[in-house]
């Protein structure tokens, strides 16, 4: 009765369940309609017309560059004149650069610390800030938890450079807040951003501060999915809090853990602004001191815009592109198999 599939391209009402949409019926009737008027054809086109602005922007500024990347990496690209085919030359140059492998190592270092840090700290914060599902349902909001959540999330929306300024002060070896705290509790005071050993940890601390609230919100959403009854049942069975967390809560939020780990690794491997801001300086080219914080993203930037070697930067970008795309696709594939997503699937 309410089959609402209609005039092709014009009237197919959504709502998520017309017969045509479910594949029960073809989306176009086998129409034998003579003489459609121009107006109707225009209406058939209206759909494309409305999609076109979004489509052209995304195609022009994202898909075309993505395609261009594959070309550039195999050319001696010259911004101002003719470009010549290079074959694998860019890559062989690249793989003979010790600095490139150093940058990959720094990237791996950064990601290897950030991913567990984001995940564990995010989960810990969420556990601290979470409200019982019952409270969420009844709409009663405890101000304490709400404020804590707001404050923890706030750094994530702040502009990176603006907040890097104060963190640069925090990390000042002489008068900064970090070393003041360390001095107070009687620990050693590293040189932070001036030290090849401590510059990266400083950047990591800033990154954690900036991103962990974001991941905590994912965990809060994940924890809200764990029904109170399940925990009560575990309690009734005599399970300790740790046991029920490990055996009940953790498996149920495994999709969130997985998602946060992936998001964090993709973000870590692309981290740029905070490293640029904290490790730059008047010496030209960020990523210091002595390349201690030159991650892949920083090296791409420096190669292209400081050393003016755009083809090499393109080759590096292509490697990064393929690695990150692979992570994303593997995540899509694995997510289906590994993780408990609720329900009986």
């Amino acid at each position: 009765m309410q089959l609402s599939t209609a005039e092709p391209g014009l009237l197919k009402e959504s709502g998520g369940g017309t017969a045509a949409e479910n594949g029960l019926l073809p989306s176009r009737h086998a129409g034998s309609f003579d003489g459609r008027r121009r107006k109707l054809r225009l209406h058939g086109m209206a759909g494309y017309l409305f999609i076109m602005p979004a489509f052209s922007v995304l195609t022009l500024f994202f898909y075309i560059p993505a395609g261009l990347l594959f070309i550039m990496a195999f050319y001696h690209w010259n911004l101002f004149g003719n470009s010549t085919f290079a074959g694998w030359a860019n890559f062989s140059t690249l793989f003979n650069q010790p600095l490139y492998f150093r940058s990959l190592a720094e990237t791996a270092y950064f990601a290897a610390v950030m991913v567990p840090a984001d995940t564990l700290a995010g989960l810990a914060l969420a556990l601290l800030l979470r409200e019982g599902l019952g409270q969420l349902r009844s709409g009663k909001r405890r101000r304490g938890g709400g404020i804590g959540r707001s404050l923890v999330f706030l750094p994530h929306v702040t502009p990176v450079i603006a907040t890097s300024i104060i963190w640069a002060w925090v990390f000042n070896p002489r008068y900064g807040l970090a070393n003041y705290v360390l001095r107070t509790v009687g620990l050693g005071q590293p040189g932070w951003l001036d030290s090849t050993r401590w510059a990266m940890p400083a950047v990591m601390l800033y990154s954690l501060w900036h991103s962990v609230g974001y991941y905590a919100v994912f965990f809060l959403a994940g924890l809200a999915m764990v029904p109170d009854q399940v925990l009560e049942a575990a309690k009734a069975d005599g399970a300790s809090r740790w046991y029920s967390f490990r055996r009940v809560v953790l498996p149920m939020i495994s999709p969130t853990i997985f998602m946060v780990a992936i998001l964090s690794s993709v973000a870590s491997m692309q981290a740029f602004s905070q490293i640029y801001a904290l490790s730059g300086g008047p010496h030209g080219g960020a990523g210091g001191p002595a390349y201690a914080t030159t991650t892949d993203a920083l090296l791409i930037y420096n190669t292209a815009f400081i050393y003016q070697h755009i083809s090499l930067a393109a080759a590096m970008s292509l490697v990064l592109f393929l690695v990150l795309l692979a992570i994303t696709l593997i995540q899509k594939r694995l997510a289906r198999r590994w993780v408990y997503y609720g329900g009986d699937k």
């Binding site: 999609i51 979004a54 489509f55 995304l58 022009l60 500024f61 994202f62 898909y63 075309i64 560059p65 993505a66 261009l68 990347l69 550039m72 690209w77 911004l79 993709v266 491997m269 692309q270 740029f272 993203a297 791409i300 930037y301 292209a304 755009i310 930067a313 393109a314 970008s317 292509l318 990064l320 592109f321 990150l324 795309l325 994303t328």
Partner: peptide, 23 residues
């Protein structure tokens, strides 16, 4: 078309900055 449009979110932005600059 929908899949194509939202798949933009999967493109690693950091890797596109060089060709985007050229474009």
């Amino acid at each position: 078309i929908f899949v194509l449009l939202i798949a933009v979110m999967m493109l690693p932005q950091q890797a596109l900055i060089i060709p985007q600059y050229v474009l």
